[in-house]
Simulated assay, not measured.
Amino acid sequence: MKKKLILAAVSAMSLFALAACGSSSEEIATMKGGKITVQDFYDEAKTDSTNQSLIRQMVVLKVFDEKYGDKVTDDMIDEQFDSYADQYGGSDAFESALESAGYTTKSYREQLKQNLSLQEGLKANMDITDEDLKTAWDSFHPEVEAQIIKVASEDDANDVLDEAKKDDADFGEIAKDKSTDTATAEDGGTIKFDSTSTDVPTEVQTAAFALKDGEISDVISATDTSTYTTSYYVVKMVKNQDKGNDMDKYNDELTEIAQNTLLNDSTFVSSTIGTELQAANVKMKDSDLADLLSDYITAADTEDSTTDSSATDATDSDAATDSTEDSTATSESATDSSAE
């Protein structure tokens, strides 16, 4: 999650919180000839698309937190919080950004818990099949150890590559001196990752996995889709490994890939959310917001209809097979009778 995503909904959340507090007749402001009440504010705020998205989010997260929140541990929250803090350059800078956006550390951790509850709830509704695991296997590469150098420009990367390919070059020392990747530079660019890792861009992973031990890549460019900035990498493979033919050895990793595939499948996510909203008997009491969750409910109903149709087709197919087998048996019996 990048900075703009972490803080995107805060202003809308603050507005909605104001509308939710106090009685509907409580006055927010007065002036000659008039006043603005909490109800006036709510009536205006609820029609805003940003606030409507926030209400949807609040309902969905509340439902999943109530049902799946006990699956979320403090360690899971700590790991995600620390990961986001690293993107801000450390906990002090991150906590300052949260404070500026209206969060406290406690309230933001609660937000993380709700988000993780949603993720756990989605996973609980997954049915990972052998076919899903086989599909994950096709794109999977086991953990490798490599050294990376990250720089800001292609010219810098070409200079690094020329220096790294000299006979007496020490790739680790070059990484310490030139790499802008603060997480790895101090350790000579050393990093371990597999194809499920999120710390290394996909473009870098793909190039690295094709290298033999001791081999150095060409310059690799990778663009961050959230900031639209491009970084350039040079990679040296330390220890690569072939995945072999034993899928069972990597079952946990393959399951994670299959789960992430479904988490990125909007049809699965929408239908699952709709199913959970129906199970929780969610009712939108404001008539102006009555259809706010209808797309989720429609997705769930469509999925149920498709599943029922598939089950019916399978039953009909089985019945047809049984009928054919019965007809064949009857025919064989009649043939035996004629022979006698």
Rank of each mutant, 00 (worst) to 15 (best):
V10E: 03
F16K: 07
F16N: 05
A17W: 08
L18E: 07
A29W: 06
D43M: 09
A45D: 12
A45R: 03
T50C: 07
Q52Y: 13
L54G: 01
Q57I: 10
V59L: 00
F64N: 07
K67Q: 12
K67W: 06
I77P: 08
F81G: 06
S83K: 10
A85K: 02
S91W: 04
A93N: 09
T105E: 11
Q114E: 04
Q114H: 07
N115G: 10
L118W: 07
G121T: 11
L122W: 08
A124D: 11
M126N: 11
A146V: 03
N158M: 09
D162S: 06
D167C: 07
F171P: 00
K178T: 10
A183D: 15
P201Q: 09
T206W: 12
K212T: 00
D218P: 00
S221L: 01
V234A: 04
V238K: 13
N240S: 05
D242S: 11
M247P: 13
M247E: 07
K249Q: 03
E253P: 08
T255P: 10
L262N: 07
V282E: 14
K285Y: 04
S287I: 01
L292N: 11
S294I: 06
A299K: 07
E303D: 02
S305H: 06
T307E: 12
T312N: 06
A314T: 13
D316F: 14
S317L: 14
D318K: 14
A319Q: 13
A320L: 15
D322T: 12
S327C: 15
A329V: 11
T330W: 00
S331C: 00
S337C: 12
A339Q: 14
